[in-house]
């Protein structure tokens, strides 16, 4: 009976280890586009500036498929503001892995990419869009080191947008 108990304890431990993934935003987790004119167009901070990038770091368990996606809530404000007005641009992808997923994808597999699977840039919607899908583009077999992605944000205000304050929440989701 003791042997069985040890056996099941080991299995349970492996399952707990299996679920050890992490996702954190380490830089620029608050975006303020400031005051904008209707019809205006702005990058985060008003300019295309890498220093304004939001840094997202995540780690996964080696050998297991995972997805990394993004979506946003509808804007809250005095009137409707389409989510598609806001877009992301992936400015960097790398980290502790020997080859970063985006780098490998872009340079080792050629410049053509599946825009619905890996999206270096895209317009937001309330549905999750995968920025990286390991089942399509592979995953580290032995290296579970951290992935680091950096994003720059852009918004186009419709030229008939009602005045007022608007806010939303961008959600990154790591699933394994």
């Amino acid at each position: 009976m003791m042997k069985k108990l040890v056996f099941f304890t080991l299995i349970l431990s492996s399952q707990i280890a299996f679920s050890a993934i992490s996702l954190t935003i380490s830089e620029n987790g608050f975006i303020d586009f400031g005051s904008m004119d209707p019809g205006g167009s702005e990058y985060t901070g008003g300019v295309y500036d890498y220093k304004k990038s939001t840094t997202v770091t995540f780690s996964v368990t080696a050998g297991t498929p995972f997805t990394f996606g993004v979506k946003a809530n509808e804007f809250m404000g005095p009137a409707s503001l389409p989510l598609e007005s806001m877009s992301w641009q992936l400015t960097y992808a790398g980290g502790n892995m020997s080859v970063s997923p985006w780098y490998r994808h872009l340079y080792q597999e050629g410049v053509s990419y599946e825009p619905n699977i890996v999206k270096p840039t895209g317009y937001f919607s309330s549905n999750e869009q995968y920025i990286y899908d390991s089942s399509v583009h592979g995953f580290p077999a032995t290296d579970s080191g951290a992935y680091q992605y950096q994003f720059l944000w852009h918004i186009n205000i419709p030229n008939n947008q009602q005045a007022g304050n608007y806010m939303t929440t961008i959600m990154f989701t790591l699933t394994q």
């Binding site: 099941f8 620029n28 303020d32 005051s35 004119d37």
Partner: peptide, 28 residues
């Protein structure tokens, strides 16, 4: 216990992080 562990093995684990976005549209 075996069924429970099989269920755990097939269940996906999820982590989420959030970025707050704010902007103000000027008055005309």
């Amino acid at each position: 216990l075996g069924l429970f562990l099989v269920g755990m093995a097939s269940a996906a684990t999820q982590q989420q992080s959030y970025v707050q976005v704010m902007l103000s549209v000027k008055s005309t």
